[in-house]
Simulated scan of single mutants.
Amino acid sequence: MQGLLVFGRTGQVARELAALAPEATFLGRDGADLTDPAACAGALREARPRAVINAAAYTAVDRAETDPDTARLVNADAPTAMAQACAELGIPVLHISTDYVFDGSGDQARAEDAPTAPLGVYGATKLAGEQGVAAAGGRWAVMRTSWVFSAHGANFVKTMLRLGADRDRLTVVADQIGGPTPAADIAAACLRMIRLMRDRPDTTGGIYHFAGAPDASWADFAREIMAQASLGAQVADIPSSDYPTPAARPLNSRLDCGRIARDFGIARPDWRAGLARVLDQLKDKT
């Protein structure tokens, strides 16, 4: 996509964006330090793109509890500065956010206008980023997604493959339910959204949910990984209380993805098919 500027270069979604849109410009830490929001805005103004995707974030959920200032700079202040610069230039911006803006109560899928109540610093800073992007006054969209996985970086699939190869039995949390989402599908959805926002200024913006289907627990996800990878490790269900973490995780991460289907024609991807593709990619790497 000509004229597209992407913040992020090594993250899971950024790498998939690079595979799908190699002609875009990608800014990593050397080109745009997200702990310096003014520098991010300056880099954007200098590049003068036709559209912007922010695929960069502080994603260390537990570390954010003891490093809130950095998390806020990266997840809130930098996206706000980017969106303000985009508003000045009259170009659309798409910002990627998370299911962690919700408290995880109940058992129903959350719509975009459901009340937010983050459980920790990570979710709170991501919510502040959403609010800053929305308040900048330009053409904007936020994509909330969940449980991202790919053949790149550190993620649940790669962790389960490593543990499943070494152990006969794994204990995995079963009371957290959400939609595993392939990074490649997130990237494809982002490109469709930003193209339409760029080419059709009247395209509806706002907040959108995008997550893989069907909803599953982490334990369900782990069992599918073991099955598709032909690993013999048995997966035993445990409650979240048996696996304490510094930052609380939402139990209910189900996202209602109807709005993105209505406005952009983007359906929820089958994460099991995405998992098969990721496993093939990992085989090719070995």
Rank of each mutant, 00 (worst) to 15 (best):
R139K: 12
L73Q: 14
T80A: 15
A83P: 11
A56I: 00
T59R: 11
G132C: 08
A47T: 13
D33W: 11
A128R: 06
A55N: 03
D30P: 00
A71R: 02
R110A: 14
P79W: 08
T125W: 01
A114Q: 08
R29F: 12
D99V: 14
T59D: 00
R50D: 14
D30G: 13
E112W: 02
A64Y: 04
T25P: 06
P37V: 09
A128F: 05
M82N: 07
F102T: 10
T66C: 09
A57L: 04
S105D: 12
V93S: 00
V74Q: 05
T125V: 00
L44P: 00
G138R: 05
Y100P: 02
R110M: 14
A43C: 14
A60I: 00
A43M: 09
V61Q: 05
G106D: 02
R110T: 11
R45P: 00
A81P: 03
D69M: 13
P68V: 09
D103A: 14
D30V: 08
P49M: 09
G120R: 13
D103I: 12
P92E: 09
S97K: 07
L34N: 09
A55Y: 07
V74S: 05
P22W: 06
R110N: 12
P118W: 08
G90K: 08
A78F: 05
C86D: 04
P37Q: 11
A81E: 10
D99F: 07
P37M: 08
D107H: 13
P37I: 08
P37T: 09
A117V: 00
L73P: 06
G123H: 01
D33G: 06
A64H: 02
T59E: 00
A81S: 07
I53Q: 01
R48K: 14
G104C: 08
G120M: 03
A85T: 05
R72N: 13
T116G: 00
G138I: 04
V133G: 04
D33R: 14
C86S: 08
R139M: 10
L73I: 07
